[in-house]
Amino acid sequence: MLRRRMLIMLGIVLLIVLLLAGYKAFSIYRQIQVFSAPPPPISVAVATASERPWQNRLPTVGTLKALQGVNLSLEIAGTVKDLQFESGQQVKAGQALLQLDSAVESALLDTAQADLGLAQLDFGRGSQLVGSQAISKGEFDRLSAQLQKNKATVNQLKAALAKKRMLAPFSGTIGIRQVDIGDYLASGTVIATLQDLSSLYVDFYIPEQSVPKVALGQPVQISVAAYPGEQVEGKISAINPKVENSTRNVLVRATLANPGGKLLPGMFANLQVLLPDPQAKIVVPESAIAYTLYGNSLYVVAHRKAADGSEEKDPQGQPILIAERRYVETGERRDGLVLINKGVAKGEQVVSAGQIKLDNGAHIAISPDKLLPDHQNSQPRTD
């Protein structure tokens, strides 16, 4: 009886051991299946390398200047008697702006005009008397000289009186007034600035090796920090016929319209000189390029090949796509696109998002890139 019980217990223990061994073997089998299964494809977004006309540009910087601009000041000293403008006012050419006290000059002019009237009467009588030889020819010459002298004195005092008054030299916008009525102004004191903002100049420098690329009338695109995203068109109006000795640069001037007077003289400007003869170039989204010290690269969508050179396909019959790393020679970057000089052909699909997860030859699946416009997004190629 005891022996029978021992056999039963031994059988139960053996059964439990077998069950545990079977469960462990099944777990190991499941793990082997998981690790041996191929990894799922990596989801990436792709774009098509397209060929488009590429306008070469010469980037530079410059400073805006008014078509006409001066600091208003008087040649002579005096006390301000009248101000005839307000800060920021639009003025016309010849408009009176300021009047200095001119009482002394006006009195001297009245005296000189009285002397001139008397000299004219003496000259008139002398011209009658010299004909009848009532006075000598020398006396008549003295009367003529006195008349000319008095005329010159009157003209001199009129010129001095005119310098006591300031007129706008041209039409434009006057700046903030720097003086008040009653101020004594020394010669050369700045009263305000006057700027003609109807159109502007922008002066910039280009290296001497770029001189053959520019010409009069060539278009220029200008942008300023005050209005980000806006560009103003201009044209080259002058090229300095001399190279600066210290910098080996050439000064160039472009003219641009200024509707509404938004742009102001003195603003810092970024310029793009549009060079002639645009050429068809291969471009890809800037997000597709990986920049490293060893060179710039991107991932190109390719089909996985079998040992016999045929394309491998998935169970649904679609080609298996992989990412092929390729080093490229890049050029100018503009508007989210990069110029590809070498390494990618027209129509090839490149990975534009998700490439940080990739290695060369990684299995990929294509999904739309929400950061790219619809016309730049690519769909999987089955050809």
Rank of each mutant, 00 (worst) to 15 (best):
1 M>V: 08
1 M>P: 11
4 R>G: 05
7 L>V: 13
12 I>Y: 03
13 V>R: 11
17 V>K: 12
21 A>D: 00
21 A>H: 01
32 I>D: 08
34 V>A: 10
36 S>W: 03
47 A>Y: 12
48 T>M: 10
48 T>Q: 14
51 E>R: 14
61 V>W: 04
62 G>T: 07
77 A>I: 11
82 D>M: 06
104 V>C: 07
111 T>D: 08
122 D>C: 00
125 R>P: 02
131 G>L: 10
137 K>D: 06
149 K>G: 09
151 K>T: 09
152 A>L: 15
161 L>C: 01
164 K>R: 13
167 L>F: 13
169 P>N: 02
172 G>R: 00
173 T>E: 04
178 Q>S: 14
180 D>Q: 11
185 L>P: 13
188 G>K: 06
206 I>D: 02
207 P>N: 11
209 Q>E: 02
213 K>W: 03
215 A>C: 01
219 P>K: 09
239 I>G: 05
246 S>T: 10
258 N>S: 06
269 A>I: 07
280 A>K: 07
283 V>E: 08
290 A>I: 07
305 K>I: 07
312 E>F: 01
313 K>Y: 01
316 Q>F: 09
319 P>N: 03
321 L>C: 07
337 L>T: 11
340 I>S: 04
345 A>M: 09
351 V>N: 00
356 I>Q: 10
361 G>P: 08
361 G>K: 11
363 H>N: 12
372 L>P: 01
377 N>V: 09
379 Q>I: 00
383 D>Y: 03
